[in-house]
Amino acid sequence: MGLTKIEIVTSLVKIDSLQKVLGKLGVTGMTVYQAMGCGTQYGAKEYEVEEKNETPALLPKQMVMVVVDDAVVPKVVDAVEKELYTGHIGDGKIFVSPVSNVIRVRTGEEGLDALK
């Protein structure tokens, strides 16, 4: 069984609820980065929706990174999508990528064992 990394870009206000959802799903660890970023609107405010900024304006975001068993990826992605969704611009993005290995430093365990 393989491992998958899920990286979630989200706004600052959603981080608490996202943590709770990930906890309920049984995700055994997460890393949160403070980030700056923008999407296709180049950081334009929602009410300026018809205009795109000429140069990208970076907005404060949070990036949550979790590594999970391949089998639970659809469930995790679905739950994260539903939690983050508001219909407004700025709901965020989810990146899903394969992970070749995970190693727990303290015990040397690898793969899924390192996540348990």
């Binding site: 405010k45 929602e46 009410y47 300026e48 929706v49 018809e50 508001t86 219909g87 407004h88 611009i89």
Partner: peptide, 16 residues
């Protein structure tokens, strides 16, 4: 589009 209708909910949308 849905995202524009959602944007309209923002108080600043019509002001701008």
């Amino acid at each position: 589009p849905v995202h524009k209708v959602m944007a309209m909910e923002n108080d600043m949308y019509m002001v701008v």
